[in-house]
């Protein structure tokens, strides 16, 4: 890293220019993935573009009934936002599962997304929330659903001179709830073997009118599973609906086997976690 250049631009446009200025460049948010990867020699940027001095990149605002989370906002700040935690408890619990207190002091939602690990904890939750990533590059801004960011482990669909400016969570209808669960071998500080995020909305009679289900760590990228959402729409989450959800979640899995779990185990757990997350989301929606 002898030639490393560090810049901390004060506008997003300046950051785009710095990314495009030649030589491999990397965006820095909390550094909890990037600095580990640089130290191990896996990533060797010539230039680091720190996003944290750009106004708005750290912070949460309410806009048009939804929430806008600045790309570099650390997990600890997200966890302290009472209105966000009330509207999107599943997203907030997923973000707060990332690492230790120390990691929470730095780790961002957009960094978790753009690191493109299939096991990233916040990603199934924001996919189920139908969140949008606002991307900025030389041609200006564009918006994509968050599930379109990761394309394979460690690779994103972003151009080398683009970065995520903010993550938008849509307005929440009445009687909506979400939840995220992961399975790890320990109770803290480990990587998800499977993660499941569910977001749903009920009518006044408790019938599900909208449902989105996403799974992590069971394929090269986190997956939106429309069949799993469709399996519970129109139901009051009775046992038959849960069985359909379980089956649809399992059918979407294309996992690997590794030391954390076999493909068969991951597939089974994906169904179980989808059921449990849906049950919690349903409970939250009934109380919302």
């Amino acid at each position: 890293m002898a030639q490393l250049d560090y810049v901390a631009p004060s506008t997003a446009e300046e950051a785009v220019r710095a990314l495009a200025a030649g030589g491999p460049a990397k965006v820095l948010a909390g550094g909890t993935d990037l600095l580990v990867q640089m130290r191990s020699g896996r990533v060797k940027p010539d230039r680091i573009v720190d996003l944290k001095r750009i106004p708005g990149l750290i912070g949460i605002r309410q806009e048009a009934g939804g929430f806008v989370i600045g790309a570099a906002t650390p997990g600890a700040v997200i966890g302290e936002h009472a209105a966000l935690a009330k509207a999107w408890p599943g997203v907030v619990e997923a973000v707060n599962l990332i690492g230790s207190t120390q990691v929470q002091g730095r780790a961002s939602l957009a960094g978790n997304l753009c690191n493109a690990s299939p096991a990233a904890d916040s990603v199934p939750a924001i996919i189920a929330a139908r969140a949008i990533a606002v991307i900025i590059g030389p041609a200006g801004r564009r918006e994509v659903p968050v599930e379109a960011i990761a394309v394979s482990p460690g690779t994103t669909s972003l151009g080398t001179d683009e970065f995520v400016l903010e993550i938008r969570l849509p307005p929440r209808p009445a009687r909506s709830g979400d939840a995220y669960l992961r399975s790890i071998p320990r109770t803290e500080m480990d990587i998800a073997v499977v993660g499941a995020g569910v977001s749903l909305t009920l009518d006044a009679a408790g019938v599900i009118t909208a449902a989105d289900v996403a799974l992590g760590a069971v394929a090269p990228t986190a997956l939106l599973v429309p069949e799993a959402g469709a399996a519970i729409i129109g139901s009051a989450l009775d046992e038959a609906a849960l069985d359909r959800l379980d089956a649809a979640a399992r059918a979407a899995c294309r996992p690997i086997s590794d030391k954390r779990g076999t493909a068969e185990f991951r597939t089974k757990i994906a169904g179980v976690l989808a059921r449990r997350a849906a049950t919690i989301a349903y409970q939250r929606a009934s109380e919302a």
């Binding site: 909390g30 720190d50 944290k52 650390p74 230790s100 207190t101 990691v103 002091g105 730095r106 500080m189």
Partner: peptide, 24 residues
């Protein structure tokens, strides 16, 4: 970032100083 032996606070937030660049 795994052991916490390097813990400090940065603008009042607990962080691992091994995962912060000095220039930041």
């Amino acid at each position: 970032g795994d052991c916490g032996a390097c813990s400090v606070t940065l603008d009042g937030r607990l962080v691992c100083s091994c995962l912060v660049l000095a220039v930041e």
